[in-house]
């Protein structure tokens, strides 16, 4: 059945996506495109509710509702994995911040030698 293949591929894709670091701009763009597409699909579903049944029949699922449920589960898995990744990244940033505070507090950096006062120099020139 087509649906089995589709779902297995989707689950594998979610697992692999979790392994890869989300890279800045592309990741953000993908998220935004996904939101727009989801809104579009939702609108179409409201206007043409029977479309889901047709698609379900095509991929070999009993009802459109079941197909929606499967899709929701895959989407939730994807959400879980990407959220985990985002939390890990945030944790990393907090770690760097906390470390910087801790080390600076314990071993202050050697004071920066005072910059030769520029105002005096220009002052001299003006005189």
């Amino acid at each position: 059945m087509l649906i089995k293949l589709l779902l297995l591929v989707a689950i594998a894709a979610v697992f692999v996506l979790g392994l890869r670091a989300p890279s800045g701009a592309r990741h953000l763009a993908l998220r935004r495109v996904t939101v727009v597409v989801a809104a579009l699909v939702a609108t179409l579903s409201v206007v043409f509710p029977d479309a889901w049944n047709a698609i379900a029949e095509f991929v070999g699922v009993g009802r459109g509702t079941d197909l929606l449920l499967y899709g929701l589960i895959v989407a939730f898995l994807l959400y879980m994995v990407t959220t985990y990744r985002r939390f890990r990244d945030m944790e990393q940033q907090i770690t760097l911040l906390a470390r910087r505070i801790a080390v600076d507090e314990a071993v202050p950096r050697p004071a920066v030698p005072p910059v030769p006062a520029e105002e005096d120099v220009t002052g001299d020139d003006q005189r």
Binding site: I94, R99, I101, V103, E105, A106, V107
Partner: peptide, 25 residues
């Protein structure tokens, strides 16, 4: 010489902090 993490971060983080402190010393 005590270096204090403001929050609990884990042993790996503590090791890295300690190593960076040692290098700064």
């Amino acid at each position: 010489v005590v270096v204090e993490h403001p929050i609990n971060l884990g042993q790996g983080a503590a090791l890295q902090t300690g190593i960076e402190t040692a290098l700064r010393l």
